[in-house]
Structures are given as structure tokens and as C-alpha cells.
Design a protein around this nucleic acid. Structure first.
Lengths: 346, 346
DNA sequence: GCCCCGGGATAGAGCGCTCTCCCCGGACTC
DNA sequence: GAGTCCGGGGAGAGCGCTCTATCCCGGGGC
């Protein structure tokens, strides 16, 4: 298709020096005579040289690539695997993860290699790819609590960093949010607003984050003089938010405040309340969680607990980098603080 | 960190054959005695061998990786570059692209390398990465009409396939939708429904797709006896849809049908109509375009023109593959047919 | 004047694969 | 029975880079 790409050898010949010298100039290693540096640089320009990545990787044992793995639980049937990626990216959360990761990687001229692992087969595929050196490590975002991938990675001795604390302890670093603290912010906001009949829609209770948010919310409510809070479990989706709220409303028609464990469910809560003739926020105040893009597009815009996803994702990449460079050897956890964002819904 | 990974040499020693034979077994090349095949396979298992990707790439000149590039126009200022990825993935469209690409790549054990190019600097970075052999080619999705990247790729002789016809002709393959046809479906549906005072909200008119949708809509309307259609230009975002509809409604208060050039704007149109006291679809029927995830979550669910994005994305990957394998040498265009999906909004 | 020292450059040995060429031996042809 | 084929296997030359060991050479110490 195209003429043979120039190699180090070609540049060296043009510059009238050895291959090693050119390599040193490119990698900025050791003392090289400034004059010769200039000559080499010009030769590189003239030849249009671009170092071959595979050759470099072969000797350095680094791929300058990081695997960004979205990992589901158990086994997704074959027909649904194709839809997995679409479902995942339908949640604005992942866009923010990608954004944060890229923010760290790009200045270091690295790129994320996108992988999905939602069945036993794809999981072992991912593991094999990593062992082949396709990437210098993995950044894992699990969509389910009982994701087996982290343990597999740890057992294989592959460098990896997780988003969110794994449900079973694993010798891997992770970043996470102070969920209880975030739920406390939501509770206090609702109470300060004067709400007195408050209910909550939780995430799937198998997920540690859901439990923490619920626990934090209950604690803060109890401290505020409300020892009992009606609870309905949702599944982090819009529909599940509607369904959960529907049940709560039937049992507690006088409700005046709702805390939903994520924004998508909060949107569902708002939609259901409107359908049932309740005005948000005048009749019922609603607080979400995440501060994802739906928080802004939702009508009314959601008051929500902001999770600094981009920062957290960037921190994942940074942690992995430190592990790879040997700067950090022990598994570490980095916990980020949430923040209340007040909009129209509460 | 871990013991030295086993190499082909190690496997060959264990199996008692030569390196070449092991390589042949792994790559399924030429006839190898079934008995020896079995011995080699066992040796691979025993040693836990995984072929080194860099070494293989070095000699085959294939990375088994495809760059998936989201490309913006002109120059995005540095502070906004980090948000680019998040903005991009906020549109459910890209999730579907990723899904389609992965659907093709995964069975071939390849992965997409995610890149963003929204400024001159990042564009040349991307170009350099590609020339280094980080990927076997590029799949490009442009967010703007005047994206310079396709031309740069073509000039550099790098294999690439585009999503949507480029505004200026370029010697590259692309996939696209029969936009005029899709707009025709929308027009005919509104007319059949009995709408008589119909307006349309277009996408940014610098984008070819927007122009085609508008032209197709006008043609079909004219054929249906409506030579004049009020038009307002939007920007494919929710807000721009609201703004455009606000203007149209002021000038044409008796409107009873709207065609919006994408679902996000259609959602904006619905929201604005509701705010102005118009019921959808009873007072005004609304048709969107794309059949993205918002079409389902929108209230009411949108009647829309489905774009088979996943199929189109998979076709991009397939085209690139064919170019790389030398099966296809000339730039090709693949045009997909849209389909009307009737839901509640019209 | 000899030796030592060290900055600055080179030579060359791999990294782990693929693939071309070559060899061997049994079956087939005439 | 000699020549020809061909299936099955091995040897070894790279692919383009990094990096260690080495060399060269000018200057300073004694």
C-alpha cells in the first residue's frame, strides 16, 4: 500500500550517526552533544520517521496502552452480549469515566483499549489479552456486585485498579466515593427544607454502594429525629425508579420528600409523581445521586449529590501508572468526597 | 512482579519439537501431524503460554487493534478538551457505535483503541500514533462537518473508514444512511396521520446529513401537496430543539405536526410544547430521528426514524478489515435504509 | 611522558515471534 | 529400481527497537 516506513537505521544513516545515538535523542537519555542532537532531529524530520511501537514494546515490555474494562456479572447470554456495550454507554456515567481516564492518559500519549467482559468466555478472553501484553494493566468498572473479574486479575498477578470497593476483598487498589457522607448530605437537605414524610428508593442492595447510601441516609435521618424511613429497592434504571416510587406512594400517600440512590431513578420518581398528580418540588421534593447529565435534562432539573467521576477515573489511571512504575507497591484505596448540587427538584 | 512469562521456545522444549512447529499449531498453518498437534497443545497448557503480542506485531505488521476516533472540528480550547469525551458520550449515539464496532471486532479477538481528536495538537498526535502502528487503521466519527481529520488520514495513506459522507470528497470508504428516504418516511407518516400545518426543526445545516434530511422532508411534503414548510435550524441538542420550536410556535400557533432531525431535539420540542400547553400527540404530533435511547425514555415515547447505527458501525469495521486484508482496494460507500418506528408521539 | 579518567559515541546482542527455505523419507510413476 | 512428488518437520534469518558493554579520545595528575 505505502512505501516501507523509515526505521531508526535510516535516520541514523541520514544523520551520519549510529542507531543508538538516534535512540538516545528520541528518548532524551544521557548526554548527547547538542550539535548532534540538532542534526539527528533534522534527519528525523527529513525522513518522516515514526518509531515502531511493536518493536519498542517488545524490548521495553510496555505497551503504552491501558485496558478499560467494563465488566458485568455472571453470564450474559450470547444474543445479549452485543447489546451490553450499548446498555452500558446509555448510562452517562461511563462517558464521564472515559473522559476522566482519557484526561490522564492523553498527556502521556497513551490510549485506553476498550474491553467488555460480561460472560465467562469474554472474561477469559480479556485475561488472555492482558497476559499477552496488549495493555499495561486494567481499569475495571463493574456493573454488578458479584463480578468475578477482579479476583481473576488479582490471582493472575495482573496490575489492575477498580472503580468502587469490590464486594469481596481483593488485593487490588481501588477508588471510591464516601457514599454514606453523600447520603447524609441528601438527608440533611431534605430535612432542612422542611420535609417530614420522607422515603427512599435504593439501588440494588447487592451492590456495596447501594447499601452504604442507604445506611448513610438512615443514620442521618435518625440523627435528625426520624428513626424510621420507608424503603423500596430499585435497580438503578428509570423504570425501576418509577416502579419503586409507585409502591411507596401507594403505602405513603402523604410523602413529601424522596431520596433516590441515582439520578436515573430520580427521573423515574419525578415522572411517576407527575403522572399521579404530584408537583415536584412543591408537593414532593426529590433528591438524586451522581449529578449525571440526566440531572440537568430532567424536568425539573435535579437536586443531586455530585460524584466527582472524572477525577476518580483519572485517579484510577494514575494509581495504575504508579503501580506499573513501581512507585507504589501495596494496594491502596482513594476515597473521594461528594458534594450537594442544589437545583429545582428539592 | 511475576516470573518470566513462558515463550515459544519454552513450549517447544517441553513438547520436544521446534519453535516453528509450535507456531504452526498455534496459527493453524499448514498440515501438522495430529499426534504432534496434541502434544504441542498439552505443552502450551502445561506452561501456561500466551503469545507475546508485541513480538507478533513486529513481524506481522498488524496490531490486531483498531482505532475508534471521535473527531471534532477546528480547535477546541485546552480547558474544554477534557469535557469533549464526556459530551460525546452523553449522546447515546456513540454508545451504539461502540456496541456495533465491538460486535464485529470481538469475535476476531480485536479491540477498539479509543482516541479523541478535537484540536490541531490532538489530531497530529492521533496521526503519529497511527503511523507508529498502534492500530491497523481508523474508524472515524466526526462531530462536525468541517472536520479536517479524514483528509489528513487519506493524505497520510492510512487506512480509515468514516461514519457518514464527508462534506468534502475524500478517497476513503464510508457508511451512511439514506437520510432523504428517512425524512420521507417521517413526512408521509405525519401526512397520513392527518396533520396539515407541519413544521420542521433541522440539524446544523453545515452538516450534510442535516441538509439531506431537510431536502428529503421538503420533497415528500411537496409531493403530498405542501410546497411550503416552515423551518428552524437547531444544533442536535435538547436546548436547541426547545429554542427552535419556541420560534416556530410563535409564528405558527396553529401547528399540528413537527419533524425534528434527531431525537434529542424532538425531546426538546415535546418539552416546549408541554410548557406552552400543547398536548403531544393530541394537539401536535412529533416525529424524531435516530431511534436513540431517549426516544424510549422521552414522555411520550417518540415516533422516530430508526437509524441502524450498530449495523452501520459493524460495517465500518468490516470495511476496514477488508481494506487491510487487501480484499477491497477501492474506496466504497455503504448506504443503509432507515425504518419508521411508531410510538406514542405521532 | 605515562596513566588514568570520563564524556560521548558505537557495536552488537538480544526481545519473542513469523516465515522462507531446506531437508528428509515414504509413496507414486514409469 | 530410479526418479519425482509431496507432506511434515527443522534451522535460522530477520522484524525495529533498547541497552549494555566497549571503545575512542582529549585532558589532567604525577
Amino acid at each position: 500500500m505505502s512505501r516501507q516506513a523509515p526505521t531508526l537505521e535510516d535516520v541514523a544513516r541520514v544523520a551520519g550517526v549510529s542507531r543508538a545515538t538516534v535512540s538516545r535523542v528520541i528518548n532524551g537519555v544521557r548526554n548527547v552533544d547538542p550539535g548532534i542532537q540538532e542534526v539527528v532531529r533534522r534527519a528525523i524530520e527529513r525522513t518522516g520517521y515514526a518509531p515502531n511501537r511493536a518493536a519498542r514494546s517488545l524490548v521495553t515490555r510496555r505497551s503504552q496502552t491501558v485496558a478499560l474494562i467494563v465488566s458485568g456479572a455472571g453470564d450474559t447470554p450470547g444474543e445479549e452480549q452485543n447489546a451490553f456495550a450499548a446498555r452500558v454507554f446509555a448510562d452517562p456515567f461511563f462517558g464521564r469515566v472515559v473522559s476522566g481516564v482519557v484526561g490522564y492518559l492523553r498527556p502521556r500519549s497513551m490510549h485506553p483499549l476498550l474491553m467488555f467482559a460480561e460472560s465467562a468466555e469474554t472474561r477469559s478472553q480479556v485475561l488472555a489479552d492482558l497476559r499477552q501484553g496488549s495493555a499495561d494493566g486494567a481499569l475495571v468498572v463493574s456493573t454488578h456486585a458479584d463480578d468475578p473479574l477482579p479476583a481473576l486479575l488479582a490471582d493472575a498477578g495482573l496490575p489492575a485498579v477498580l472503580f468502587a470497593r469490590p464486594s469481596r476483598p481483593v488485593r487490588l487498589s481501588y477508588v471510591d466515593l464516601a457514599h454514606r457522607e453523600g447520603a447524609r448530605l441528601a438527608a440533611e437537605h431534605l430535612l432542612e427544607r422542611g420535609c417530614r414524610r420522607i422515603v427512599t428508593v435504593t439501588g440494588p442492595l447487592g451492590v456495596a454502594a447501594s447499601q452504604d447510601r442507604l445506611a448513610g441516609f438512615r443514620d442521618a435521618m435518625a440523627r435528625g429525629g426520624h428513626p424510621y424511613v420507608p424503603v423500596a429497592e430499585g435497580g438503578f434504571t428509570l423504570d425501576s425508579g418509577m416502579a419503586a416510587m409507585s409502591g411507596l406512594l401507594a403505602e405513603h400517600p402523604d410523602v413529601d420528600g424522596v431520596f433516590a440512590a441515582n439520578d436515573l431513578m430520580a427521573q423515574g420518581v419525578c415522572q411517576l409523581l407527575r403522572e399521579k398528580g404530584r408537583a415536584v418540588p412543591d408537593d414532593v421534593a426529590v433528591v438524586g445521586f451522581d449529578d449525571s447529565s440526566v440531572a440537568v435534562t430532567c424536568r425539573p432539573p435535579l437536586t443531586t449529590v455530585r460524584q466527582p467521576v472524572e477525577e476518580m477515573a483519572a485517579a484510577m489511571a494514575a494509581l495504575l501508572d504508579e503501580h506499573n512504575r513501581g512507585v507504589r507497591t501495596e494496594p491502596t484505596s482513594l476515597i473521594f468526597d461528594p458534594e450537594l448540587v442544589v437545583r429545582a427538584s428539592a
